[in-house]
Nucleic acid binder design. Sequence first.
DNA 1: TTGGAATGTCAACAAGGCTGACTTAAAGTG
DNA 2: CACTTTAAGTCAGCCTTGTTGACATTCCAA
Lengths: 170, 170
Amino acid sequence: MAEVQNVQMYGGESLLFLTDEQLRQGIEAMFFAYRGFTADPDLILQELAYGRAHHRAIHFINCAPGTTVNNLLGILGVTKQSLNRVLRTLIEDGLVESRVGRMDKRERHLFLTEEGQKLEQRLSDAQRSRMRAAFRQAGPEAVAGFRRVLEAMMDTDMKRQYRTLREGRG
Amino acid sequence: MAEVQNVQMYGGESLLFLTDEQLRQGIEAMFFAYRGFTADPDLILQELAYGRAHHRAIHFINCAPGTTVNNLLGILGVTKQSLNRVLRTLIEDGLVESRVGRMDKRERHLFLTEEGQKLEQRLSDAQRSRMRAAFRQAGPEAVAGFRRVLEAMMDTDMKRQYRTLREGRG
DNA sequence: TTGGAATGTCAACAAGGCTGACTTAAAGTG
DNA sequence: CACTTTAAGTCAGCCTTGTTGACATTCCAA
């Protein structure tokens, strides 16, 4: 592999190392990998007439049960109208429960029902099994690097969200 | 950083290392990072009333000038109706040129015009500069790991596409 | 107590995926 | 040559998921 040969040529943090070509390859790898990343859950969602938006909502409600609509909005980065449509169908279908806030009655706290949890399991099993295979194939050091690059690629406020989620479960 | 501590506990390829929690973090990192990845070009596209679909077309036509519509369909993984809508506007707007094949007159070979190349530059500069910053921040070894994980996450046929593109330019 | 801010809902529209049916032109094959 | 296949493009219509605008409810502070 002729792609890491320029590392450290100028000492310290290396300059030549980042050729446009290598950056282009990184961009394309990201594009193709993201497709792989979503492919398995997409198949499951399709048979239920749901989309990726439903998956994302389910995922983060599962991570933070009792979260409010507003909070979810911040994480997902969409408009509340867009999220609402998805939430409405999930509530109608009995996968998500929305409880009026006790302190602040304007807020709705969101929870997965048992059925919702079951679907979450199915979806994340599918996604995790590909991730697990990739992690295993690439090895622990590659995984650490993978995470470091992804974190560096996030916006600062996204990174905050990500860290919050990470620490919430630890 | 308490996340790589379980590596190699069982010798050889490590088992404990892949906890569900770590996989979940990988999934979320991928989600947030992909948003960051597309954020900068999206801003540029918005002011031109184009979308991500236009960007993808422009990117791959730039990578493989003279590619046919059919080939592009394979790379992008969309239907021809969907691609055609995008391609038509790009041709109308004078960013892409479509030449009838000389060997096989059924084929159309796609090229970026000068103006198309200019936009491609603008878009990829934006995207690369974030990627460059992330790569630099994470360091060369992390980048190698990043690439290894992403490649392992692709489907086999995507990987073929990716490799072909990689070798085409070297 | 009243006006403004926050939270969530409803309605309508656009982008960009999808399928299906069809045309045109060129290439390949018996 | 006649027939089939392939490449490309088009039209119509659907779905998901993003957007903005208008609106109801609730809370809080002046």
